[in-house]
Amino acid sequence: MKLKQVNTAFIITIGVSVVVFVYLVFLGYDEIKTLKDVIKIIASILFPIPMLFFVRFLLIEHFLPKNTDEYKRKNQKPAILLLIVTMIISVGSMQLIEYFTQQKLEDHLIFAHLINSTTISSYVLNYILYNNLKVNGILSGVLLSLAIHVFFITS
């Protein structure tokens, strides 16, 4: 059971990356103009995968805590706090960067892809292998803030 989880983790990680890639390519279709853009987007999607393999190679032992009620109760509050704090910090810093450089995130799709694929990959990996609730909070915060930024704040 455990071994199966380990093996499916990477397949799911890669699968999610591919799905996100296809989705984003359709989403930003009119912004892809040259072959260069395509290469850059593929590279930014692939970016987290070797790193994940390396991390997994180092941390081969399971840190999978028993998913008990006690563990959840103990980590609920820090996880929620981290989620909110990360969300505020990420949205704020993205606003600041846009304000200072006078550029929109939408004009630099590569960075959006990079943040997105890295966070999603580590999210899936953490969820399946390590099940660390605090890390879950941070990663959820980053993803949520990216979504909020793209969806609500920039018009």
Partner: peptide
């Protein structure tokens, strides 16, 4: 990958 993203 880093070259492809940032320098290419």
């Amino acid at each position: 990958i880093v070259y492809m993203i940032f320098l290419f």
